[in-house]
Design a protein around this nucleic acid. Structure first.
Length: 273
DNA sequence: CTGTTTACCTGGGGGC
DNA sequence: TGCCCCCAGGTAAACA
């Protein structure tokens, strides 16, 4: 589900909803979504509060008031949102956080249960980024760093942009949107691109991701923000999930193929190899 | 070392 | 209605 714009939308919402509220109870209904042990995570949370929430790529960092940080990754179908405290949980709700004096609780829902919670020491955050091979965040990456990261890559441009070590935050929806707007075939070899072409890719990447953030992300089935609301950027997609529909530039039919093991949508006329 | 495939899960949709 | 197969916003482990 969630790529950078969806994760950023969740983070912005959580900062408005959940900061500086003492956590009085934590329920972890599905312990296997926790890296480490559920009891140690629960112990770290209860009696503390969320001091701030940050993001790098698709990773969410809940900084807790005891110098601990809970790293949350939503993977495909994870949802982090608030709901009334008295609303009964359904079978896909795996974590519930209750706050003092609040009529809402923060819950984690995940149909496919790929998402993970990890407890780290806040001082180990940089180490965590390195260990998980996360490159610069897509919204702040510098042109020269993308040029360097793409140098000597033998994979397709699509695979390279999906590689979180190259650039963090792009996923399967937005990579297709970026390549469509750049008129680049997904199979293009990165080494064939000029420095200016790479600069253009980065500029388009930031523009697409920022516009998606303003639209509160893209919802196809499961994604909701921290208020439980769907995104709207699916209305602005030009390539992803548009197989059989006319290209917005040339009216050629958008096709779907498989690149880098992922469903890939592109215009065979505008995005020639 | 780099690149590719598979495994992890549940559910929705299409074909029959 | 039901069964079977394929597909899905991601990543890490296993494999070549």
């Amino acid at each position: 589900m969630p790529e950078l714009p969806e994760v950023e939308t969740v983070v912005q919402g959580l900062k408005k909803q959940c900061l500086s509220q003492p956590i009085c109870k934590a329920l972890i209904h599905l312990p296997r979504i926790v890296n480490g042990t559920a009891p140690s995570l629960k112990k770290a949370l209860v009696g503390q509060e969320i001091v701030t929430v940050t993001r790098h790529g698709k990773y969410i960092f809940l900084h807790i008031s005891n110098d601990k940080t809970v790293v949350v990754h939503l993977r495909m179908t994870g949802q982090l949102f608030t709901t009334p405290v008295d609303r009964a949980k359904d079978k896909h709700t795996h974590v519930e956080l209750f706050f003092d004096n609040s009529d809402t609780k923060l819950i984690y829902r995940d149909i496919r249960t790929f998402g993970r919670f990890t407890l780290i020491n806040t001082s180990d955050k940089e180490r965590y980024l390195i260990d998980h091979k996360l490159g610069p965040d897509a919204l702040t990456m510098k042109k020269k760093d993308l040029i360097e990261a793409l140098k000597n890559r033998k994979v397709s441009i699509k695979a390279a942009l999906l590689n979180q070590e190259v650039i963090a935050g792009i996923g399967n929806i937005y990579v297709d949107e970026i390549l469509f707007r750049e008129k680049l075939n997904p199979l293009t070899t990165p080494s064939s691109l000029s420095d200016d072409a790479i600069g253009s890719i980065l500029k388009t990447t930031k523009a697409v991701l920022k516009k998606a953030v303003l639209n509160k992300g893209t919802t196809f089935s499961d994604y909701v923000n921290s208020y439980g609301e769907k995104g709207k950027f699916q209305l602005s997609l030009k390539a992803y999930n548009r197989a059989g529909q006319p290209c917005s530039n040339c009216k050629t039919t958008i096709v779907k193929v498989k690149v880098a093991g992922r469903g890939t949508y592109f215009c065979p006329s505008c995005q020639k190899l």
